[in-house]
Nucleic acid binder design. Sequence first.
DNA 1: AACGCGCCCTGTCCGC
DNA 2: TGCGGACAGGGCGCGT
Length: 271
Amino acid sequence: MPELPEVETIVRDLQSLVSGARIEDVSVVHPDLIVGDPAEFARAVVDREIVGISRRAKNIVIDVGGDRLVINLGMTGRVLVVPAEAVEPSHLGVRFSLADGRTILYQDVRRFGRLQVMDAATWKARSGALGIEPLSSEFTPEHLYRMSRGSRSAVKVWLMDQKRIVGVGNIYANEALFRARISPRKAARRLSRGESERLHAAIRKVLQESIDFRGTTFLDYRDAGGEKGAFAARLRVYDRESEPCLTCGSAIRRIVQAGRSTFYCPLCQRG
DNA sequence: AACGCGCCCTGTCCGC
DNA sequence: TGCGGACAGGGCGCGT
């Protein structure tokens, strides 16, 4: 479900809500969500303090005093901070009871998400295998241009590969290509320097704008307080099949690439 | 080695 | 009203 802006929003929420909190108890309701042994997972986080919270790609990374609790939300995962008396939601996966009485809930209807505890060195290696952060200063137009050389994949599919650029999923791949006026079918290696520059700028702009609006709620996404993001109203092509292009009025088209829906304007995004 | 596909799972919506 | 099929912010493991 969540792409970079949604995960970033949750991480910032968690930073203000639970930094410094102590985890007093853990109960794993759905063991299939845990990578590794669930009992070991519970032991590794109980009686630990939440020292820091950060985002890497689409992962929430919680420093529990050396070890890292890494949460990937899959399609429908939510991390919710709730008061002691709160009614628990359906599809509860993991419950973290805090010493102050509040609870952090991991909820996931489809259970595509995963939670894992690992030591800092293991996490460092895992993180190193992921692609570049698109909002970092290391990510430049030149970087995008060079990475795309040699890839025969359609640029839309290429953009979603987390080993290259992280955090861009189906919604923002569609939106960035529309803003850059590039056809989603174009082979990545055929991007010109000018197109690489436009795409680089469009990726950063759409991700940053969405963060400013606390992410896109298409169906399931909620922030750590259970609220929807407001960016859905600002999407220009995603889920707008047959509706008029906001630039030229042409009907937005939907095609399928690598099993995922692609939305684009056939006029604004030619060649 | 890069790339495409099927699969993991539940819920919702649409057409018949 | 019921039922089958398609589809939904992701990612892994497989085959070629």
